[in-house]
Design a protein around this nucleic acid. Structure first.
Lengths: 339, 339
DNA sequence: CTGTTAGCGCGTTCAG
DNA sequence: CTGAACGCGCTAACAG
């Protein structure tokens, strides 16, 4: 392995000088800098990131913690968007990243998790799908051993930032988009998980919608479960005129139920997952740019590491109406294979 | 930060002794070991993995390289299975892992990639979805700077292992399972990407199937593309009696095409992705345990790191017939939410 | 069985 | 502007 010393010898300068040009410090003559860079080229020198991390006290390492629910394919899509967005951005920023799934952490205590992170020299943690009632992770966050960025939770404060879209506004808009197809004044809202931050925001949105149009709103919690949404729809589907769901998957569950009941009501979803494109029915949904959100979260982590204050970041969303043709069109445009 | 020295002082022994109990070396009296462990407990000592990595020459760090095709939701599922399987196993094995997507690597030269890995002290690389004609990555592998495990490619040799299922046998079996519904002797095989290793194995399987039953086999390449499979089916669908596809997504494309053409032929897929459960038609497919495969790949990486020989590992597969009820049943059994 | 010591490769003063 | 020297926290011989 070629080390910084080799480069120093080759270019006839001291180690520290090489280090300086490596890290872009001033106080190096252009001539020396050139010589060093030449040597680096010739020797194919690559600085050892481990040694650098050990030596330097600045923490440029972050952890990604992903609340992956096993074996759910729609979730896979979200997580992959999050992951690829975050990893890509991290690479751009020159950060070293460790990826964790909840399942790798959930048999650990807060102490153990903190220890794990510290032992790896992690300076900031980004949580995706942070759960309001996960006390262990909450403790990890609030012990504040690291800077933290939380996606989809409004807990911005000292050393903690949050990144998400305007849940209330998004839910309001997608319901508005669905409204024209509706006759009647009863709207069933299939909400997600009780006590989840996103759930509350979205419920506010649907409430505002109902108030504005003087509709009768009924809210049921389905825990983001397709099956529960389906069951609720079987129960309530005949007593409503429109169904709004807090996730696409629940919307699909509701839609399949209506089909089996052989009744039709407009439905709208939330998230914009690919599965929606395979669903036969035209359905409005909120389209979130998950990789964009993740990239922003990573950038925010960098900001925090630089000592900036925690803050609340709201990113834009779009409305969409995915249909099967979208699948084909996307493939055509991108020229990508899809297995 | 509490260091190994603190522990040594606290327990009244030398640093090296602490190191020994830490790494489970012999030649430490039970009494000393106990004292050290106590001190570790009291001090909440967590060894610094970075320092350990720098000091130790044994490389316990691996890279995961994932051939993720952007924005394809069925692919997301595969990749997440691979990823979670691999990460989970890596954690069990005490390995440090770096995750890469192809997109993060494809503007780099082989030298740069090797440099990146070396700078991180990576000893073994696991490739998922290795591409036969990706010359850069091929060079990375064959320069043999690291041990390599390749999923789905038969390039086992010195320092290189491969892990996959028996493609030929699996393709044969799933065709056999589909056969009973067929009347006629024409079978259309929609293959994946030309020159992909899995493609060749599967084609052998379908050939064997055709030979055994004296069927007329026609092979078309659709590059694992749903859209291309759809187009091929539009073209050939009336001149065949059965369609076998080298992936579930292509099978879905073929199925949608047949539906639009208003003809019916049995179809079978390959992989066992969740999307299949949402497809209305009953369809046999090969079910691969992707996380299991990934876990095996990681274990194999450890073996290679320990100096063992490269080898070819064939893992078992299953046949399945996913239907929508599976989605609901899985959810019920697991009690998991699914967004 | 235990302690001493020499690095691992690099960042960082601080004299020169 | 440059270089010698120290230390990051730990592992691994080597003595004792």
């Amino acid at each position: 392995m070629v080390t910084i010393k080799d480069v120093a010898d080759r270019s006839g300068v001291a180690i520290s000088t090489v280090s300086k040009v490596l890290n872009g410090y001033p106080n190096v003559s252009e001539k020396t800098r050139q010589a060093v860079n030449d040597a680096i080229q010739e020797l194919h020198y690559v600085p050892n990131a481990i040694a650098a991390a050990l030596s330097s006290k600045t923490r440029i390492r972050i952890a990604l913690v992903i609340n992956s629910v096993e074996q759910s394919q729609s979730i896979d899509e979200l997580d992959m968007r999050y992951l690829s967005g975050a990893l890509e951005e991290a690479k751009k920023q020159g950060l070293t990243v460790r990826t964790y799934f909840y399942s790798m952490l959930d048999d650990l205590t807060a102490d153990e998790i903190i220890g794990e992170f510290q032992s790896l020299g992690i300076g900031a943690v980004v949580f995706f799908g942070f759960n309001k009632d996960d006390n262990v992770l909450k403790e990890v966050v609030y012990r504040k051993c690291f800077k933290t960025v939380v996606v989809d939770s409004p807990i911005a404060e000292d050393g903690i930032s949050s990144v998400w879209i305007d849940q209330k506004q998004a839910q309001f808009e997608v319901a508005e988009a669905t409204l024209p197809q509706v006759s009647g004044d009863r709207v069933l809202y299939i909400a997600g998980k009780k006590n989840a931050y996103v759930t509350e925001g979205r419920i506010q949105g649907i409430k505002e919608f109902a108030t504005k149009h003087k509709l009768n709103l009924k809210v049921e919690y389905a825990d983001f479960s397709e099956r529960k949404a389906r069951e609720i729809t079987f129960r309530e589907g005949n007593d409503t005129d429109m169904i709004a769901c807090a996730s696409d998957l629940m919307a699909i569950g509701a839609m399949f139920a209506l089909k089996e009941m052989d009744v039709y009501h407009p439905i709208c979803g939330f998230d914009g997952i690919g599965l929606m494109s395979y669903a036969a029915q035209k359905m409005h949904t909120v389209k979130q740019d998950f990789s964009g959100i993740a990239a922003e979260a990573v950038r925010e982590a960098v900001r925090l590491l630089q000592g900036e204050e925690g803050r609340n970041i709201i990113l834009p969303h779009e409305l969409a109406t995915p249909v099967y043709e979208d699948v084909l069109r996307r493939e055509e445009e991108w020229g990508k294979n899809t297995l």
